[in-house]
Simulated scan of single mutants.
Amino acid sequence: MTTRYEEFRDLHRSGAPLLLPNAWDHASAAAFAAAGFRAIGTTSLGVAAAAGLPDGAGSTRQETLRLTRGLTRLDALVSVDIEGGFSDDPGEVAALAVELADAGAVGINIEDGRPDGTLRDTAHQSEILHAVHEAVSDRLFVNARTDTYWLTPGDGCAAARTEERFAAYQQAGAGGLFVPGLKDVRVIAELTSGFEAPVNILHAPDGPALPELAEAGVRRVSCGSLPFRAALRGAVAAVESVVRGTALPEGIPSYAETQALSEAFA
């Protein structure tokens, strides 16, 4: 019998690229599940901002665990964004991965960007990934993210640095390789052809469309914080419509429809 982890892993291997919407609370995840998305990620920005905390600062470990325990009640495959692991200690990050697996998550996303805007040492990040792999290799799909295109974009070495880190992270046991901020289809295609692990790209409004990414060999496309930011804009737009006396945006769920999102998984 196929496990939930195996089902999630296999979504990266065949068919269309896995489009992963990213939720920040139970209602947003339930809405994605109700819309037919089988797999759902979390967004560290959304989780942090909803709690009044900064993103990427390692301050939302408890919020992330609490959210995961709630989301896994849904009939969905949940992958959790754990920033840099909320610790620099490989054993502590591995212990967190075990907690998330025990809570019912099927994947995690772990990044090498540090709160000070630098990249974690490649060897150190590889140690963390190896410790996680040893602890949960048959329970969690580990998506290793490198922030080479976000934190070192202008030095002309981002592509080479990405390849170097991808190679190290794949060797350490990462199941997937993620590089947000990369939009060059040629470079993307070179990465997908050069690594066995599936490559994950972050959707960008000014970047390649899904068909182009699929053609380039991308196996997973994340929405990141886009849904959370769009929800904030939608909330403000609704109130502004009330102020102006204009029509509300179309498609706003009713009270009963929204209540049903929670009642279905209580």
Rank of each mutant, 00 (worst) to 15 (best):
A260I: 06
A167W: 09
F166I: 01
I252A: 14
F37S: 13
A172C: 10
Y149E: 00
G41K: 02
S44T: 00
R219S: 11
A189W: 09
P253K: 14
N109M: 01
R186Y: 02
A235T: 11
V221S: 09
L182H: 01
A39V: 12
L129C: 07
G85P: 13
F86R: 08
P211Y: 09
V142R: 00
S44L: 01
S126Y: 14
G41N: 05
F8G: 05
H12Y: 13
D81K: 07
W150I: 01
E263R: 13
V242K: 02
A160I: 06
I108N: 12
F86N: 02
P54C: 02
F178G: 12
A51V: 10
A97I: 01
G245S: 13
P90W: 04
E127H: 07
L53M: 12
I40T: 08
P227S: 04
A94F: 09
A97K: 00
G107I: 00
L182C: 07
V98K: 15
W24C: 12
P180E: 07
G234F: 11
A101G: 13
G175V: 04
Q170W: 07
P198L: 02
E212N: 06
L20I: 15
D10P: 14
L261N: 12
S241G: 04
A31Q: 12
I252P: 00
A105L: 04
P208A: 07
A264R: 14
A30I: 05
V218F: 10
A197E: 09
C157P: 00
L140W: 08
A131Q: 00
